[in-house]
């Protein structure tokens, strides 16, 4: 609650302190008033409040949660995290997720990167038809793939392997990643490439020296989007991985909250453990990720 009072004030102070210099170099004219800040802050509470409450739930005893579900914990039960970690077998799940998500991200970036470049820059016959195909492809109900894919995968020996699951994720996520990356590449200026081409540089050199560095923020974006999707997916993971030693954390959590325990404090702790790595990764990368996304459109290299 205190946030909503503080922020607008700070905002005004900021406006007084350094008004002119900033408005020239960056963004449009800053005309935001208290009203805007209040709404923006309310939105912050809407976005983060539930997570904060969930975090508090993870730190309460069961009795306290029942009597005081919305308040601050009286005594901070950090032990809940240890219990949840052990009972839900989070360690193994997280490790498996790292492998699966890592594999998916790398392969998707490669697959989507090549395709997006081809679609954005090279004049390929049937290119627009293929884009339409990709759009339709990313709009199919994936649940209906479960049985045919299972059949194919067990024939190919990919069933119950992490690689098999990675391959499915790449297949499922790459169409959208390609489309995203392609529209990103379309906003990149062609001038540098054309200049290089006139200087006689080969396509490969252009790709590596000019396109790739420019496209890096876009790649980072699709890496994040794909990585998240893979990290959070549970339906295919449950179906295609049978050996419980190989299961990613989404499925561990899914079955943990599905009645394996009646203890909501532990479910909360397990949930926090599950979202923590992605949260940390995002917080660490967000500046590059988002700034890259915004600055690249202007063609700054």
């Amino acid at each position: 609650m205190s946030l909503s009072v503080k922020l607008p004030l700070d905002g005004n102070v900021g406006e007084v302190n350094r008004s002119n210099a900033a408005s020239r170099t960056r963004s449009p004219v800053g005309t935001a008033g208290v009203f805007t800040y209040t709404i923006l802050t309310a939105l912050v509470i809407f976005a983060l409040g539930p997570i904060v409450l969930f975090f508090f739930s993870a730190l309460k005893t069961q009795n306290e949660l029942a009597s005081n579900p919305l308040g601050l914990p009286q005594t901070w039960q950090w032990g809940n995290f240890i219990d949840a970690w052990q009972q839900a077998n989070m360690g193994a799940g997280l490790f498996n997720s790292v492998v699966i998500v890592g594999g998916t991200v790398i392969l998707t970036c490669f697959v989507a990167g090549c395709a997006a470049y081809a679609l954005a820059r090279l004049e390929i016959r049937g290119g627009s038809a293929f884009i339409t195909y990709l759009l339709v492809t990313s709009s199919l109900p994936t649940q209906m793939f479960l049985v045919p894919l299972f059949y194919l995968w067990s024939r190919a020996g990919l069933y119950d392997t992490q690689f098999g699951l990675i391959l499915i994720y790449v297949g499922l996520f790459s169409p959208f990643a390609t489309l995203l990356l392609r529209s990103f590449m379309l906003t990149m200026p062609k001038e540098f490439e054309e200049a290089a081409r006139m200087d006689g540089a080969g396509e490969l050199k252009i790709l590596l020296r000019i396109v790739l560095p420019n496209a890096l923020p876009g790649l980072l974006t699709i890496a994040l989007v794909t990585g998240l999707s893979a990290y959070n997916e549970f339906l295919f993971a449950i179906t295609f991985i049978q050996n419980s030693d190989l299961l990613p954390v989404s499925t561990t959590f899914f079955s943990f909250q599905q009645g394996f325990t009646q203890n909501f404090t532990l479910i909360s702790a397990a949930g926090i453990i599950m979202i923590a790595p992605m949260l940390i990764l995002f917080l660490a990368l967000q500046r590059r990720f988002i700034d890259g996304l915004s600055s690249s459109g202007l063609g700054g290299a």
């Binding site: 976005a47 959070n232 995002f282």
Partner: peptide, 22 residues
């Protein structure tokens, strides 16, 4: 249109998207 805390707001809004659906 805001100058202060833009980064903070943006990050805050994005966080729920990171939370797994489960």
């Amino acid at each position: 249109r805001v100058r202060r805390f833009r980064l903070l707001f943006r990050v805050a809004y994005f966080i729920p998207y990171i939370v797994a659906s489960v």
